[in-house]
Structures are given as structure tokens and as C-alpha cells.
Amino acid sequence: MLQPSNYSLVLFMQFLLLSYDLFVNSFSELLRTAPAVQLVLFIIQDIAIVFNVIIVFLMFFNTYVFQAGLVNLLFHKFKGTILLSAAYLALSISFHVWIMNLRWRDSGRFIWTEGLQTLFVFQRLGRHRSSAPLQVLLFLNGWYCATYFLLEAFVFVYKGLLLPYPVSNLVLDVVLLLLYLGIEATRIFFGSKGNLCQRKVPLSLSLALTVPAAVLAVYYLLLQTYSLRLEAFLSAILLLFYGLELLLGFLALLSFSSTDPY
């Protein structure tokens, strides 16, 4: 059994490991130009998290409840702690792998991706009015937009080869698809910048561009010459994105400061 006099040592170890974890999270970005040093810090941080989890389990093993065989009772009482620790460890390792892959080969250049912007908004959600859910949707919508465009392009090739597709209608559908790509890229750009910078004008422009983008999605869903089930499914998902982004965008506009002139 763990003696009461040893609890102070256990708590000291826990606080020491927690302090190191906080230190790395706070200041590791300053070492982005030295990826080898940053990698070592990340590895030690992940090992420290594992040690913290091990200490928690050692505390469990030294209880009378565990020695009596009531493991299920212990898990029921502390499942939140166990699951949260496991989730934090998984997220920490995933973040470290992601950062290292982004910056390892080009450490001399500042790299800031849309994914990092989204993570930054999540981290600052409690203190700022930027909408993290909106930023996540815009980020996912950007990837979905590219997928939608490529799939539609392949579908047009398929329909042009196998179906009696009038040339004028095919040209119209292709031109509208290119127009959709331009509108969507502009809409996502202004929406992301307006949300992150808490600026009403770019976010309002993004919301306004959502209307023609949604009209084009409805066209490909219902009005084009030949609409395949795949296109209907893709367009329906696109309209779902637009509906959620309109709602979150209006809420973000309402939350921005009324004194902000931009």
C-alpha cells in the first residue's frame, strides 16, 4: 500500500509533469526554427503524459477497492479521468506529428495552414467572439468543395460520353461548375478571414455569396439536364453546409462588436 507520507511525493511528481506540459504548450512555438529541439520536447511531453497516466493507475492499484476485486467500481467512478487522459494523450501525439510533418523540411519558413487557424480559433473561443464551429465548417467545406468539383467534372465526362447530352447544355453545366468553383473559393476565403479577424464586411460578403452558391447547388440537384443520384447526394450535403454556415455566420455577426467599423 502507498503510505500517506508518500502522497506528497506523488503530488509533487504530478505537478512537475503538469508544469512541463504547460511549459511546452506555451513556449514550444518559439523553437519552430529548430525542429530537432522541438521534436525532443514533444517526445518528452508525451512521455510525461504517459507517466501521469501510469501514476494515476498506480494510485488505483493501491486502493482497498482494487485489492478487493471491485475494478468495475473504480472504472465507473473514474472513467471520466481515464477517458480524458487517453483523449488528451491521443490529441497531443496527433498534434505533434502534424506540426512536425508541416515544418520539419522547411523550418526556416513560417507555416500557418487553415487547420492551424481552426485550432487557434478553438483555443481562443472562451475569450473572443470568433465562431469556432463556423471556422471548422468553412475548413471542411473547402475540402468538400474541391471534392465536389472533381467528382462533378468526372460525372460530366461520363454523361458526355454515355448519354445523349446536348452540347449547349453540357457547355452550360461546365461553365456553371467553373463559376461555382470561383464563387465558393471567394466565399470561403472571406468567411474565414472575416470570422478570424472579427470583421463584419468580409463575413457579410461571404454570407451574401452563399446565396448564389446555394442556387447553383439547387441547379445541380434539380434543374440540370441529367441529374445522377450521386450528384443529388453531393448537392444535398452541400446545401446542408450552406444552411449551417448561414446560421452560424449570422450568429457570429451578431456577436461582433457594434463599434467595429470594418
Rank of each mutant, 00 (worst) to 15 (best):
Y148P: 12
Y262F: 14
L140T: 14
Y242Q: 07
Q123G: 15
V157Y: 14
Y148S: 10
A87F: 06
V10C: 01
A132T: 12
F256C: 03
I99R: 13
N52K: 12
L244V: 14
Q14D: 05
L251C: 05
L134D: 00
I237R: 09
S168I: 06
N52P: 00
L254M: 14
V71I: 04
R129S: 08
R129M: 05
R124M: 14
L181C: 09
R229S: 14
L83H: 11
A68S: 12
E152F: 15
H96Y: 02
V71Y: 00
I99H: 12
F241I: 01
T186Q: 13
L238E: 15
V157Q: 15
A208P: 10
Y242T: 04
V56P: 00
L216T: 05
L91E: 01
V40M: 11
A132M: 13
L70G: 00
F12M: 13
Y242R: 05
A252K: 05
L31C: 06
L162A: 15
L234W: 13
V50R: 08
L161P: 02
Y148M: 14
I183V: 11
S107Q: 15
S168W: 09
V175H: 03
V174T: 03
L11T: 10
G69D: 13
F60L: 06
L41R: 01
A48C: 14
Q45P: 03
